[in-house]
């Protein structure tokens, strides 16, 4: 008697990827680089599930340039058991990767509009791949602006890229920190203060926002206060995710499975759900 045939390969089965490079970005944040040989296409805003066998699996947004097809990078903050364990790996170690999953940033909605990219903390990681793609399609958009808020000057992510983007004539970059330090010469305050001061055409702008939920909530208020329509404001949402493909149930927020219906949602769609505590 035959035993059951599992049929098609399980969607939960990762592929083995050796780490080809690793950068420490901050004291607790690192980027793992993988060689993909052009076999891994993704759009900015999408995520993968990364596994360390025997430890566990976490969802991580892709931070690398989507138009560089032989390399894929994940920028990870060590905050739980899996992300701390992954941080102890190095060149040559093998991890499992499934994906990409989830909805990308809807960049086409920003064609002929001002594109506002607003990041808080580690939220810059999924937005970095969006910035690469937006710069590659720069003539599609009018003004391109990055507003980035960080906890303190020591926690600024991707300083090399920030410096490079600041030097461009076709992109505005504004940075603020919540808490200053003696050598910091820049802005101090929450990222919402940058939103209040930013110059953009409220009626013809699209905003893409990623950061802690509380930060996105207040950025949404600041943007709509300036006159932006909630249909044109997009958030990347986060919840506990165990499968990334809508089967494990964990990431539900109201009727949305954040992993397969999101993680990118318009403010108009997600706002009612963000207003209910502990939903």
């Amino acid at each position: 008697m035959d035993t059951l045939n599992a049929g098609s390969v399980s969607a939960m089965l990762p592929s083995a990827f050796p780490i080809v490079d690793k950068d420490w970005e901050l004291a607790d944040t690192y980027t793992l680089h993988f060689a993909t040989d052009g076999a891994f296409d993704f759009d900015p805003g999408q995520m993968v599930m990364i596994s360390q066998p025997g430890v566990g699996e976490v969802p991580i947004s892709i931070s690398s340039n989507p138009d560089v097809h032989d390399r894929m990078s994940l920028t990870i903050r060590g905050s739980g058991s899996v992300t701390r364990a992954l941080g102890r790996l190095d060149y040559g170690d093998v991890v499992g990767i499934r994906g990409p999953y989830g909805t990308p940033w809807p960049l086409d909605t920003a064609i002929d509009q001002d594109l506002m990219i607003i990041a808080g903390g580690i939220g810059l990681a999924p937005l970095r791949s969006l910035i690469y793609r937006a710069l590659a399609r720069r003539s599609d958009f009018r003004n391109l602006t990055l507003l980035y808020g960080s906890r303190d000057p020591q926690s600024l992510l991707f300083e090399r890229e920030l410096h490079e983007w600041r030097g461009r004539f076709d992109m505005e970059v504004e940075i603020t920190v919540d808490r200053s330090s003696p050598e910091w010469m820049g802005e101090v305050g929450l990222v919402t203060s940058l939103v209040d001061r930013a110059r953009f055409s409220e009626a013809d702008a699209v905003a893409m926002v990623c950061g802690p939920e509380i930060m996105m909530h207040f950025v949404g208020i600041a943007l709509t206060d300036k006159g932006m329509h909630p249909d044109n404001i997009f958030f990347s949402m986060e919840r506990n995710m165990k499968c990334g493909i809508g089967l494990c149930g964990h990431c539900q927020l109201g009727a949305e499975f954040l992993c397969k219906d999101g993680p990118v949602f318009s403010l108009s769609r997600i706002e009612p759900l963000m207003k209910v505590e502990e939903l």
């Binding site: 008697m1 939960m12 592929s15 093998v94």
Partner: peptide, 19 residues
């Protein structure tokens, strides 16, 4: 069961149940 990992590769664990 979902998968096993051995020497750098992942393989799906077959279901040992009969119909």
């Amino acid at each position: 069961p979902m998968w096993t990992y051995r020497e750098g590769s992942f393989s799906a664990t077959p279901d040992s149940t009969r119909p």
